[in-house]
Design a protein around this nucleic acid. Sequence first.
DNA 1: AGCACGCCGACT
DNA 2: GTCGGCGTGCTC
Length: 837
Amino acid sequence: MMTDLPQVSLLPDENRTTLFVDVILPVSVPNLYTYRVPLELNELVKVGARIIVQFGKSRVLTAVIAKIHQTPPEKYPAKYLLELLDEHPMVTGHQLELFSWMADYYMCCIGEVLNAALPSGMKISSESHLQYNPDFDSSIPLSDTEHLLLETIKKKQSLSYEEAASLVGQKHLYKIVKSLIAKQAIIIIEEVKEKYKPKIVKKIRLLEIYEQRDNLQALFQILDKKPKQLNILLKYLQLVPVLSNPVVNKEGVDKSLLTQDDASASSLKTLIKNKIVEEFEIIVSRFEEGSPVENYQLKLTDTQRQAADEILQWFKTKDTVLLHGITGSGKTEIYIELIKQVLDSGSQVLYLLPEIALTTQMVNRLRKIFGDSMGIYHSKFSDNERVEIWKGVLNGQYSFVIGVRSAIFLPFDNLGLIVVDEEHETSYKQHDPAPRYNARDVALMVAKKQYGKVLLGSATPSFESYYHARTSKYGFVKLDKRFGEAQLPEIVLVDTRMERRMKKIKNNFSTVLIEELRQNMENRQQSILFQNRRGYAPYIACEECNWIAQCQNCAVSMTYHLHNHELRCHYCGHTEKSPAVCPACGSTKILTMGYGTEKIEDELQLLLPHSRLGRMDLDTTRKKNAYQQIIEAFEAGQTDVLIGTQMVSKGLDFERVSLVGIFDADRIINFPDFRSHERAFQLITQVSGRAGRRDKRGKVIIQTANAGQPLLQNVIDGNYTGLYEKEMHDRKKYNYPPFCRMIRLTVKHVQHTLAEKAAAVLAGRLLEKLGMNRVLGPESPVVNRIRNQYLKDIIIKLEKDNINLKAVKEMIRNEMQEVCTQKEFRQVTIVADVDPL
DNA sequence: AGCACGCCGACT
DNA sequence: GTCGGCGTGCTC
């Protein structure tokens, strides 16, 4: 009778220890949260494993364990964690360290970092399902909406919260559901399911007994009268020579190979039913496996070999090396050589590329060399595929990954080398949701933590990186010979003002450009036209009253798109039909002003009626595979001229392109930003590099209203360093990066005055702490209203040395917090962008 | 960021 | 009096 009590206390102490876990939630909350571990999981919880927790009243989230301890929280009782998802950690210690560093450095929440890092397939969704209670007393009166919802639930057996919400209209849902529960009409089930599903292929094989000749012969007899089934069997035997090699039968063939039509499918079904063949499933990787080409010999030129050696030499003393190699100098071969060496030494490699440069061309090329030990991490891939790469990196299946920005978050633990190709590319910086990180810079930190090296490569390095190379922070290798002695293109400036005055310009094409295009076409050569602006016209205006179509949510003009006659805001995505008459004065004289890729395409079709044109910009590549199709058509010579935005500027190497036309160079050059010249040089040089690859010297025609500007001369001469020196002089003088660190705070509010006021208060407080040399603004950005929110920028400039950066950022965060909690500024949001571009 | 709860005005 | 708007503060 007393036996029960002592038994409990006799249990070993360890088993009764109450454990708690501090977890990172993939949401925008500032702290870690503490949950209690159910006793039965005590042995199983691990730092880095994912768990399911209830967060708040109705949310169920996936969290990652950051710490396991025994200290119960003082101020609140900890909730139990609901479920442990991983036996083995999915997030490594290195990653946890990185997340926390990034949250500090980029002034965001660690949860926001986690959210960016984890592919959403690893963040389990909570779906509350509503179910009809069969014991419901239907005499209880219901409101109309309640009735509607209940009927739907009854009909569909079970309804997800979201489905119900869309049926009823989000805002009323909670109360209706609550009331239905109170009336015992429905029951709620919380359903958590894993999103990740491995790809499964259905296979067919012959039953084992038919691997024997006699049995198989007998089978033929049986099927003699059933030609369709026999047919399938013969087909199978053709693919799998069972008699000569019975072992191959084990692996079978893909079911899809045997079933081309319904008839064969049904015959196959009969074969399965009659126990002649069997169906089985295997889990496959989502990528076609390409085995490495045996004895692949990389042929480096002497120059390339020398550069590779130099890089290795530098790595002995520096963690980072900048490779400055002009377009067509064969940087990729050097990367490949180094990657192979690092992989051979047993370390992992990450090769980062900007999204638009991660082309099929590139992937196929690398696949041939590295086979299936190479993983591809691309945003165009589905979640399942991303999860597979993640797991593959963890379990060692992939020692080499080629990927875009977010690949920097993969769970490597032994990175020997990170290659950041086109390191100057702005797409390495994430702009919108936090964390506003730059993968190129994060790569340096990742490598440092794992004692790995970073190779930055570019034909036009960012001035920051070049500066670090010059000041010996990075090693530096220069490659200025084009592969196979190909010549740099000839660059011609066309003065559009002059041409316009002489009435030689047709629409937006100078006579020179149109003539070259015509000739190029006649010679069966291809051309690329670059205009860094999509749509037909950047704005439309009324000739009578000067009315301009503006976005209702943003302080920008609406871009006119000829396709479906639409006006579109490129900031918020708002669209409306283009008006036939001026909304202000009723005039029908509405003109399109300026020009984008769509208009160029339109005009060129008129000027060269027989030309076959392709256009590549955000509008034509939105659909899946559209990008690929446009490129393939161009590659196959089905298009004469490819017109496009930045998308055409990199990663595409075409043999027959010998002419590049650049429109409106001035707009690229005179962008109001301290980096505009650097950018213009990079962009124009990159686009020019598309002209003339091998034997033929290409030609580049730049249309400009100001042919005399020095920057264009720099471009013509390929004088990178000249521009660098000049720009550095200015940046030093006016204290811009790389001579300072910059942090931009953007204050947003729907009311202009409140945004202004809050920004002024914040700037004032920061000024007090940092002094007037370090705080600029508040200032209105060029586009001062986006999505109905007015914007005010405050720029903070901090010296690079002798400053406690962490403490200053902490202080800034506090001040932001302080301002936001003032009653007046409750609705104001402030975003911090560290190292903005 | 969500999301519930509460305090206010508009209408049955 | 109830419904539903929006402001406010919390989430282990």
